[in-house]
Amino acid sequence: MIETEFTPWMSLGGGVLIGLASVMLMLFRGRVFGATGILAGFIIPAHSGDRAWRGALLAGMISGPLAIWAMTGQMPAVEVPVSTLAMIVGGIIVGVGVTVGAGCTSGHGVCGVARFSPRSIVATISFMAATFITVYLVRHVFTGGVL
């Protein structure tokens, strides 16, 4: 376990930027800013000519930490309190879940909730609850470690 400090202002500021980017994508291209949908449509496009803007958006997202590094001289913290196996297993499970559930934290949790979409509100409650339960089980029940 790695303890982390409560960062209200940085987190609120980051949230505001995430919201702003979501509004910009809707204003520019009429799209929901869902990381799952953007990535999935880039890997396996629904139709041709759909890849360029997704690629530009993904490139921008990946440039985020580099911009922070350019401004502050430090990369944003990525502290990993779990094993490599947990990263692989967790990654596959996330990939399956967001595809079947048609969205993730950004698509359902931010954009969908902001549009008052009943589907997104239900999806958000479902994944938040599942994450709370999973973390509780990993941290407080199966303390011997499973992954």
């Binding site: 779990v82 947990a86 596959i92 996330v94 990939g95 079947v100 993730c104 950004s106 479902s126």
Partner: peptide, 23 residues
Amino acid sequence: LVGGSAVFGVGWGISGFCPGGAI
């Protein structure tokens, strides 16, 4: 929708990454 999202939550809890965080 409900099941897929719950599965996503399990993976998020195991790894600490969601797609919008990881990209």
